[in-house]
Write a protein that binds this DNA or RNA. Structure first.
Length: 152
DNA sequence: GCCAACGTTGGC
DNA sequence: GCCAACGTTGGC
């Protein structure tokens, strides 16, 4: 299976690229959207990720990460003290899955949402067509282009 | 803080 | 299975 490419969103106030660089890797918990979950379940170790800051000023892609552990159940769904607790999920049949990602690099220049939207070559990105999905697939070409726009 | 564009839930 | 009501995301 060829390497694939993704875009993952995080609010910098919750977990920024700086946090990822400091931690070196993290588990991507708290995703409670089926499409995003399905995307994570199809990820393979080595897949590359555009790291996107949402609810930021300006919002945009700030770095590159890499999948370092394939999908396993999101532990927060079983933790009644977590805000991500899901009483309808069981350990035998977990509803929510996540992957681990590791820090690769920071982009020398931020590629803002506005930059992405105004580039005709990126008009088909899910980020443009359907903004709200927090874990999206991107094509190899889109990934390469955003990376280049970011000065990497 | 507003609100558009979604997704989810649950009554029927 | 429909759909109204409600919740969430995320740009602005």
């Amino acid at each position: 299976m060829a390497k694939r490419y993704w875009l993952m969103k995080s609010e910098p106030g919750v977990y920024s690229i700086d946090d990822l660089e400091r931690d070196s890797s993290t588990l991507w918990d708290g995703v409670r959207n089926y499409k995003a979950r399905n995307n994570m379940r199809s990820m393979k170790v080595g897949d590359e990720v555009l790291y996107y800051h949402s609810n930021a000023n300006p919002p945009g892609v700030v770095g590159i990460a890499r999948v370092c552990r394939e999908a396993y159940p999101d532990p927060t769904q079983f933790d009644s003290r977590s805000k991500y607790f899901d009483g309808k999920s069981t350990r035998a049949d977990p509803r929510w899955w996540l992957v681990d990602i590791e820090f690769v690099a920071r982009l020398p220049r931020l590629v803002s949402l506005e930059d992405v939207k105004s580039d005709p070559a990126l008009a088909d990105m899910e980020l443009v067509r359907y903004g709200r999905l927090s874990v999206q697939a991107v094509t190899r070409e889109e990934f390469a282009r955003v990376k280049r726009m970011g000065g990497a």
